[in-house]
Simulated assay, not measured.
Amino acid sequence: MIIHRFDHKNSILNTFMAEIRDKNIQKDGMRFRRNIERIGEVLGYELSKTLDYEDLVIETPFGPKESAKTSDSLVLCSVLRAGLPLHHGLLNYFDGAENAFISAYRHHPDGGDAFDVIVKYFAAPSLEGKTLILTDPMLATGKTLENVLKALRNHGTPKKIHIISVIGSNEGVDHVANVFPKETQLWIASIDEGLTSKGYIFPGLGDAGDLSYGEKL
Rank of each mutant, 00 (worst) to 15 (best):
D52G: 14
R33E: 04
S212N: 06
S212G: 08
D72N: 14
P137T: 06
N10W: 11
K49E: 11
S78F: 03
Q185S: 09
G142V: 05
K23H: 13
K159E: 07
L149H: 01
N24S: 08
K49Q: 14
Y105Q: 05
V75T: 03
K198G: 15
I20P: 04
R21G: 12
I39Y: 04
S197H: 03
I36A: 08
E146R: 05
Y200S: 09
P203K: 05
G194P: 08
D113M: 12
S103E: 01
V57D: 06
S48E: 05
T144H: 02
H107E: 13
F122A: 04
S103V: 01
E128R: 09
Y105I: 00
S126R: 00
L205H: 01
T135F: 02
D116Q: 10
N99G: 03
L205M: 12
N170A: 08
G129P: 15
H88T: 15
L51G: 07
I20C: 07
M1V: 15
G40I: 06
F94D: 10
L90R: 03
I58Q: 04
K182D: 12
L47W: 00
I188P: 01
D116F: 05
E193S: 13
D28L: 07
E171Y: 03
D110S: 12
S126N: 02
T141Y: 06
Y121K: 13
I161L: 10
G89L: 14
A208M: 11
N154G: 09
R31N: 15
K198E: 15
G112R: 01
A100C: 09
H107N: 12
C77E: 01
P203I: 02
K182R: 12
P158E: 03
N154W: 03
M17F: 03
E54W: 02
S103H: 01
Y200G: 05
T196S: 14
E215P: 05
L86F: 08
D174V: 11
L132D: 01
I2V: 14
D95E: 14
D136C: 03
F180R: 02
H8D: 10
G199V: 10
L91H: 12
T50E: 10
H8R: 10
L13Q: 00
E193I: 07
S103Y: 01
L211W: 03
L134A: 06
G172I: 03
K23T: 15
Q26G: 03
L74M: 06
T50N: 08
K120E: 11
I191A: 10
T184H: 01
L211V: 06
A82W: 02
R153V: 04
H175N: 10
K150P: 01
N99Y: 03
V173C: 00
K65E: 13
D95T: 15
M1E: 13
N35R: 13
K27I: 09
L134P: 03
K9E: 15
V119R: 02
G111M: 10
R81K: 13
N92W: 09
H155K: 10
Y93S: 13
P61C: 06
K130S: 05
L13V: 01
K23A: 12
E146N: 05
A208P: 06
P125D: 09
P64T: 09
L217G: 08
F122L: 09
T184P: 00
R106N: 11
S71F: 05
S71P: 04
F101Q: 11
T70F: 14
P64L: 08
G83C: 15
T15L: 12
I167V: 08
R21T: 13
E54I: 08
L186S: 09
